[in-house]
């Protein structure tokens, strides 16, 4: 094989395997994780802002929780969710989650866009776009 061809091949290899590296320098965004906003009327009214479960756990597993709720509510008819700390919550995306997180654009969408996650929540549920409460 000609040496020039090898060099061309190596250059192509180097450019392709370093796509994440050089593209992060040409991209306008700095790649930092987005800050989700907790500035909603419902959260501001809480003396001590607290989700149904621990924040760290919610970050990684909120979809598991919603999936469980879907099964329990739709199939079993159980509307009450007992959290790890023993408090009871109404198992409802629309009435419980969106009650506090009424800012779809600044909450849900931020991380979902950042990591290109496309959940099907909004195929059926209404996005909480109006600040001030669910729906």
């Amino acid at each position: 094989m000609k040496k020039t061809n090898m060099i061309i091949g190596l250059v192509i290899f180097a450019v392709l395997v370093t796509v994440p590296f050089w593209s992060s320098f040409v991209s306008p965004a700095n790649g930092a994780a987005p800050e989700v906003s907790l500035d909603t009327p419902a959260i501001n009214q809480m003396a001590e802002p607290k989700c149904v479960e621990d924040v760290e756990w919610m970050r990684a597993h909120h979809m598991d929780l919603l999936n469980d709720w879907k099964v329990e509510v739709v199939r079993e008819g159980t509307r009450v969710y007992v959290a790890a700390d023993g408090t009871e919550h109404l198992a409802s995306l629309q009435n419980t989650c969106f009650e506090c997180h009424s800012n779809y654009e600044d909450f849900c969408l931020k991380c979902h866009t950042y990591s290109n996650v496309n959940p099907t929540c909004w195929d059926c549920h209404v996005e909480p776009t109006v600040v001030g409460g669910a729906n």
Binding site: P20, F21, S23, S24, R59, A60, Y114, S115
Partner: peptide, 17 residues
């Protein structure tokens, strides 16, 4: 499941040296 936002924050740090 993992916290994908945290994973991407690490990954973007790697990509940007």
């Amino acid at each position: 499941h993992v916290d994908i936002t945290a994973v991407k924050a690490v990954a973007m740090g790697i990509a940007g040296f």
